[in-house]
């Protein structure tokens, strides 16, 4: 099954990218930041919501369109509590956060996500020998189902599978777990599998 394909090569480039993001974030935050990508999987688009804890899970998400030689969509998401903790780490502002994050928090989250999105696409671009770049970031905070319904709509038309990448970030002020959801269009997905098949030998 396509989903069972060996993903080592992919994990490798994503971890290299994660390292680059961590270095940049360490510089910006003036504290040691480490980012690790322990695993990833391919799954049918209609299983995504379930995999992430169900439609009612409150999440913080930053969305990017993938542009370049191939296209797709990408969403970096955290459960709400983790997202708020991350905002605190990024801004150094310990005020308790009620409801949606403030503009300053959102801005900090988008900057961080921008670095992660860029390094992730750099890695994929290198692996696939293509040009890829992310759009500017777009922010959402609400129930998972409501945030991703448009993604399910748009991407189910062009692809059966999505890629779910687990990410772990550790800083001096706390550890963060997040998910990077990548929805490549069909061409993109085929290129990924082609490349992974080649790497198997």
């Amino acid at each position: 099954m396509k989903e069972d394909i060996k993903t080592d090569a992919l994990l490798e480039v994503l971890n290299i990218g994660a390292g680059q993001s961590a270095t940049a974030l360490s510089e910006i935050l003036r504290q040691k930041v480490l980012i690790n990508v322990p695993d990833l999987k391919f799954l049918p688009i209609d299983k995504v919501t379930e995999s992430l804890g169900g439609a009612e899970q409150k999440i913080v998400g930053i969305y990017f369109q993938i542009n370049g030689d191939i296209t797709g969509k990408m969403l970096l998401l955290f459960d709400q509590k983790t997202g708020h903790m991350l905002a605190e780490i990024l801004t150094g502002d310990k005020t308790k956060r009620e409801g949606k994050l403030s503009d300053i928090d959102m801005s900090a989250m988008m900057e961080m996500a921008n670095i992660i999105a860029n390094s992730c696409l750099n890695g994929l671009a290198g692996l696939l020998d293509m040009r890829l770049m992310p759009s500017i970031p777009y922010y959402a905070e609400d129930e998972l189902g409501a945030v991703i319904d448009f993604l399910l709509i748009e991407m189910a038309i062009v692809s059966e599978l999505a890629m779910l990448v687990n990410t772990e970030m550790s800083t001096e002020k706390g550890n963060i777990k997040g998910s990077l959801l990548v929805f490549p269009d069909d061409t993109f997905m085929n290129k990924i599998f082609e490349r992974l098949e080649l790497q198997k030998t």
Binding site: Y63, K73, M106, V147, F150
Partner: peptide, 17 residues
């Protein structure tokens, strides 16, 4: 029919709602 993301965009997806 909401637009869940802050900041309208130049691509169609922002207007799907």
């Amino acid at each position: 029919g909401a637009c869940m993301f802050s900041g309208a965009g130049i691509s169609d997806f922002m207007n799907i709602g």
